[in-house]
Design a protein around this nucleic acid. Structure first.
Length: 151
RNA sequence: CGAGUCGGCCGGGCGACCGCGUGCGAGGCCCGCCCUAGCGGUGUGGCCCCGCCCGAGGAAAGUCCGGGCUCCGAAGGGCAGGGUGGUUGCUAACGGCAACCCGGGGUGACCCGCGGGACAGUGCCACAGAGAACAGACCGCCCGACCGCUCGCGGCCGGGCAAGGGUGAAACGGUGGUGUAAGAGACCACCAGCAUCCCGGGUGACCGGGAUGGCUCGGUAAACCCCACCCGGAGCAAGGUCAAGACGGCCGACGUUACGGCGCCGGCCAGCGCAGGCGCUCGAGGACGGCCCGUCCGAGCCUGCGGGUAGACCGCUCGAGCCUGCCGGUGACGGCAGGCCCAGAUGGAUGGUCGCCGUCCGGUACGACGCUCGCGCCGCACCGGACACAGAACCCGGCUUACCGGCCGACUCGCCCG
């Protein structure tokens, strides 16, 4: 399981990442992701610990997935799967994994493969938009790693 | 052995690896404070890491009742509104539970009942049927006049009757007799039922017995209504503390940009700011869910414009608590003694992946028994599949609903053996 400190806790964070983040879909789930500079325009929060420093992850399991028991089961399995992949995420990134109705019936192995594929595609899209024209974000962004002015 | 009734309990187990949350303890780094200024002390502080303890349910569910707790004002009266409805108890309380009463069902153990009032009033009673509420006469029974006649009768008119047939959930008591032209509680006996009174038993619902009366008086209150009793409102997003705070904050649309922003419009929610008006005991205004009364608060209030919270902590888990034993009670339950501490998350912990076992179902093979020779049933082995309903969110007591299955106890009926 992921500790509470690396999970998204604010409704605003969920809204921003789901609304403006880069998306990658699979049959069982959809990954929304933002690079560190897109998550927080200001100076990054200093954070210690292993893996991607400051990376935050959240999960959305809606009512269409199933009843309360089914939804909790899906969310727990996704948290366990994300724990194994969390260290490989870029530092400071924000990721929201949204489960689809098929996730309830899928095996944990299938969920893991879908999560890998979706994370890879979302990562590629972040890299492309940072390097190139940034079609999804009309207001352009500085490349990852360069801190915005002011500090 | 078979069939059944009631009550209680469990609701997969063990292991390995990897994890999450609260609490406690040790350590490291940072921060604040103190001084004797150090390799110091201190902490309601933050982060990391290690160890230990604990960590979902019988329904955690539906949110249908009842309470605790919190705030509204300290919780008044009447009306309206809502709820409950055999009796006596239990309980903090209840629409819950127990025992009993009455009615109904079952051979029985036992089960079921929204179980006050229909002479206070109003309404409704479909279809069928002649007639459905101070009812009614289709077939029918009887008497009389007239006509016909094959002299057993038929037709028609007037009158009497409601026994028999038929309709219906229900037809204005039942059976037998007297009576009569035929009949009818018209009268009589018994029975059922109703009303009033008396006696006996029971705390009571009610039960048992007796007398008198008129002879019989439908159902529906989960229709309005009447009677008795109960109910102030909102809810842990209750409520409280702290920090920030006016040149402010967030969100969205548009325009512009040197991509840092800027302008403008709109929206959002408070104790705030400005202006105007009214008022300070001859009292503005307000509170008590609605209305009236009554009571109380009261120095601020109203309007317009501007402007605009929802972060952290407390509440938050020791409670009508759980277990064991004894005592009282038919029982629900109560009393006493001893022991125990048993989830507190907040995008929301209580788990993930495997292995072995267990339970159930299906198939195959073998063995025992029964046999109507198709099969049934039991044991065992292997293979395959399934393992329910469901996730705390302030806390309790209930109710209701969902649920693969399993275990235990008491009792009833039938058959067989001794």
């Amino acid at each position: 399981m992921l500790p509470a400190s690396v999970r998204l806790r604010k409704s605003d964070d969920f809204d921003r990442i789901v609304r403006t983040g880069h998306r990658a879909g699979r049959p069982t789930l959809v990954v929304h992701a933002l690079a560190a500079t897109e998550v927080r325009p200001g100076p990054p929060v200093a954070r210690s610990g292993p893996g991607g420093a400051g990376t935050q992850v959240g999960f959305v399991v809606g009512r269409d997935v199933g009843g309360s028991v089914q939804r909790h089961r899906v969310a727990r399995r996704l948290r366990h799967l994300m724990r194994a992949r969390w260290a490989d995420l870029p530092a400071g990134a924000g990721v929201v994994v949204r489960a689809l109705p098929l996730a309830a019936a899928a095996s944990t192995g299938t969920l893991g493969r879908d999560l890998d594929a979706a994370l890879n595609r979302a990562g590629a899209r972040i890299a492309r938009s940072s390097a190139g024209r940034a079609p999804r974000r009309p207001a352009g962004q500085v490349s990852t790693g360069v801190e915005p002015g002011g500090s």
